[in-house]
Amino acid sequence: MAKIGDTLKPFSTQAYKQGKFVPVTDADVGGKWAIFFFYPADFTFVCPTELEDLAGIYPTLQKMGVEVYSVSTDTHFSHKAWHDSSPAIGKIDFFMLGDQNHTLATNFDVLRDGQGLADRATFVVDPQGVIQLMEITSEGVGRNAAELLRKVKAAQYVAAHPDEVCPAKWEEGEQTLAPSLELVGKI
């Protein structure tokens, strides 16, 4: 199972993005924050609600230097057809990666045995290619883009301030904690 601290593994695939098919590799991801947003399949039920929700925060993520890569084991052709036919998916401007060879789902260890589908999983990778956040939910449990945004902000804050940590429900601008011997038992 992929875990916090693991490094992004090599991959090469095709994506659909803003009306074009484009190649995407691990080298394209390096040097910036990235979200890999796995979902089971195009033309399904929970998936379009999640992807539409994520599309709503994509401009904010871009301003924060974060790129989004949605991933399913469908092809980039299927992503285009879905984008063209679904009002919810039509709102997406981020990369929609095809993973029909299962390279990414295998690299992140979210490929469902015997099904050829990816689990509903999110990975946040830092500019050095290291996994900083991850979340995997069951088939029927959709994710919340606002909470993902909060977590990315916290991860970026901690990366920029290595002597501080963000407590539960931390929001940008709120007080952080500076771990120390004096703080033990005082919270």
Results as ranks from 00 to 15, higher is better:
residue 149 L to I: 01
residue 140 G to N: 12
residue 103 T to A: 15
residue 99 D to A: 08
residue 87 P to R: 02
residue 85 S to M: 11
residue 106 T to V: 10
residue 62 Q to L: 12
residue 9 K to F: 09
residue 127 P to K: 03
residue 174 E to Q: 15
residue 80 K to P: 00
residue 125 V to H: 03
residue 83 H to Y: 12
residue 151 K to C: 13
residue 102 H to W: 11
residue 52 E to S: 15
residue 3 K to P: 00
residue 162 P to K: 07
residue 19 G to Q: 02
residue 111 L to V: 01
residue 179 P to H: 12
residue 97 L to Y: 06
residue 167 P to M: 08
residue 130 V to D: 09
residue 64 M to I: 03
residue 47 C to F: 05
residue 25 T to D: 01
residue 165 V to C: 10
residue 125 V to A: 04
residue 8 L to S: 04
residue 120 R to S: 09
residue 126 D to R: 09
residue 113 D to I: 04
residue 128 Q to I: 02
residue 15 A to K: 00
residue 156 Q to C: 09
residue 38 F to P: 01
residue 60 T to K: 10
residue 156 Q to E: 02
residue 60 T to W: 00
residue 73 T to M: 12
residue 16 Y to A: 07
residue 120 R to G: 08
residue 28 D to C: 07
residue 122 T to K: 08
residue 99 D to K: 09
residue 42 D to R: 08
residue 2 A to C: 11
residue 69 Y to P: 11
residue 80 K to Y: 02
residue 171 E to I: 14
residue 37 F to V: 01
residue 48 P to D: 09
residue 171 E to T: 15
residue 169 K to R: 14
residue 104 L to P: 04
residue 139 E to W: 11
residue 174 E to D: 13
residue 1 M to E: 10
residue 121 A to D: 12
residue 159 A to S: 12
residue 30 G to V: 05
residue 168 A to R: 10
residue 101 N to S: 15
residue 159 A to R: 01
residue 18 Q to N: 14
residue 127 P to M: 00
residue 125 V to I: 15
residue 81 A to I: 07
residue 37 F to G: 02
residue 81 A to Y: 01
residue 142 G to K: 00
residue 184 V to G: 14
residue 168 A to F: 04
residue 140 G to A: 10
residue 156 Q to W: 09
residue 171 E to V: 14
residue 119 D to W: 11
residue 178 A to Y: 06
residue 109 D to F: 05
residue 167 P to E: 11
residue 40 P to M: 03
residue 21 F to W: 09
residue 73 T to I: 09
residue 176 T to Q: 04
residue 186 K to L: 15
residue 43 F to R: 08
residue 151 K to W: 11
residue 103 T to Q: 13
residue 108 F to L: 01
residue 62 Q to P: 03
residue 29 V to M: 00
residue 75 T to D: 07
residue 64 M to V: 03
residue 157 Y to I: 02
residue 13 T to L: 14
residue 76 H to N: 05
residue 10 P to E: 11
residue 100 Q to W: 13
residue 77 F to C: 04
residue 90 G to I: 09
residue 50 E to H: 09
residue 185 G to V: 05
residue 69 Y to F: 15
residue 65 G to Q: 08
residue 41 A to P: 08
residue 105 A to R: 06
residue 130 V to N: 05
residue 44 T to M: 04
residue 31 G to F: 00
residue 180 S to W: 07
residue 4 I to F: 03
residue 41 A to V: 08
residue 137 T to A: 14
residue 134 M to L: 15
residue 95 F to K: 11
residue 150 R to G: 01
residue 45 F to E: 06
residue 69 Y to C: 09
residue 64 M to K: 15
residue 102 H to T: 13
residue 51 L to I: 14
residue 147 E to P: 04
residue 81 A to P: 07
residue 41 A to M: 13
residue 138 S to D: 13
residue 87 P to D: 12
residue 60 T to V: 08
residue 86 S to R: 04
residue 34 A to V: 05
residue 41 A to K: 15
residue 121 A to C: 10
residue 47 C to D: 14
residue 158 V to Y: 02
residue 143 R to P: 03
residue 39 Y to R: 02
residue 107 N to M: 12
residue 174 E to Y: 09
residue 34 A to R: 06
residue 62 Q to E: 15
